[in-house]
Design a protein around this nucleic acid. Structure first.
Length: 214
DNA sequence: GGTACGATTGTCT
DNA sequence: GACAATCGTACCT
C-alpha cells in the first residue's frame, strides 16, 4: 500500500474510536502486519471479541484503571498486550473514546504473508501442526506476530510503527460474520451468554473452537 | 507481606 | 474430556 492509502492515520483512528461492539465486526478481514528483524508477517483477522471496559465484568478494566490496563483507558488504535497464566500473551486493540477502556481481543487469524517466519516462531515456542494452527487462538496469534508485553501501548495506526493495522478494503463479506458468547470468560455460562460479543468469519478454518468458561 | 486467581494451551487418559 | 503448567496482578489482612 502506498502513501495514498485512503483509510489510515486520523481517519482510521476515528473509525476505531467507537464502542467495541461496533468496531469488533469491522475488524474481521482486516490485516495486521508486524515488522521484525526475523521477518515480516501479515495476518488476516478472522475472530475477535469485544470488551466494554467498566461496563463489562469480563474486562480487565471492569475494576478500574491500573498500571497494567492503563493502555485501555487511552486513545484508540493502540495495542494492549497482557500475559495470561504467566505463559501466554493475548493481544487487544484499544478502541472507543479515551476513558471508556473499550478493547477488542484478537482471538484468531490467518497468516497471509510471512508464513515461514510465523512457522519458525511457532516451532521455537512449541508445537505447530499445520498452517491453519499458526494463529488459531489468542496466544498463538501473539506468537505468530511476535507480539509480547514490549508491544503494550504500541500505536498500530500511526506510520512507522513496527505493528500496523490495515482495515479490510471492502469490509467482511455480507452474511459471513457470525456472533456468539465469548470464550473462557469468567462468570460462567450465564455471563458469557449475557454478552454474546464474539465475532468471527463463518466457516473460516482458522477460527478457534468454542470453549466454555470453567 | 501473603494469597488467590486468570480473556489459554498442550498433553494425557 | 480433563487437568497441569506458571507468574504477574489485584485484593485482603
Amino acid at each position: 500500500m502506498a502513501a495514498s492509502d485512503p483509510v489510515s492515520g486520523p481517519r482510521l483512528r476515528r473509525a476505531l474510536a467507537r464502542p467495541a461492539l461496533e468496531v469488533a465486526p469491522t475488524l474481521l478481514g482486516a490485516h495486521l502486519t508486524t515488522r521484525r528483524p526475523d521477518g515480516v508477517v501479515r495476518l488476516r483477522v478472522t475472530e475477535v471479541e469485544a470488551y466494554e471496559g467498566a461496563l463489562d465484568p469480563g474486562s480487565h478494566a471492569f475494576r478500574g484503571q491500573t498500571a497494567r490496563n492503563a493502555v485501555m483507558f487511552g486513545p484508540a488504535g493502540h495495542l494492549y498486550v497482557y500475559r495470561h497464566l504467566g505463559l501466554h500473551h493475548c493481544v487487544n486493540l484499544v478502541c472507543g473514546p479515551p476513558g471508556t477502556a473499550s478493547a477488542v481481543l484478537l482471538r484468531a487469524g490467518e497468516v497471509v504473508d510471512g508464513e515461514e517466519v510465523a512457522l519458525a516462531r511457532r516451532r521455537a515456542a512449541g508445537v505447530c501442526r499445520t498452517p491453519v494452527d499458526l494463529a488459531r487462538g489468542p496466544a498463538r496469534l501473539a506468537v505468530a506476530l511476535a507480539l509480547d508485553r514490549s508491544d503494550d501501548g504500541a500505536d498500530v495506526v500511526g506510520g512507522g510503527a513496527a505493528v500496523r493495522l490495515e482495515p479490510a478494503t471492502s469490509g467482511p463479506p455480507a452474511g459471513a460474520v457470525a456472533s456468539g458468547p465469548r470464550v473462557g470468560v469468567s462468570g460462567a455460562g450465564g455471563a458469557a451468554e449475557a454478552f454474546p460479543w464474539r465475532f468471527w468469519l463463518a466457516g473460516d478454518a482458522t477460527v478457534s473452537a468454542y470453549r466454555r468458561a470453567p
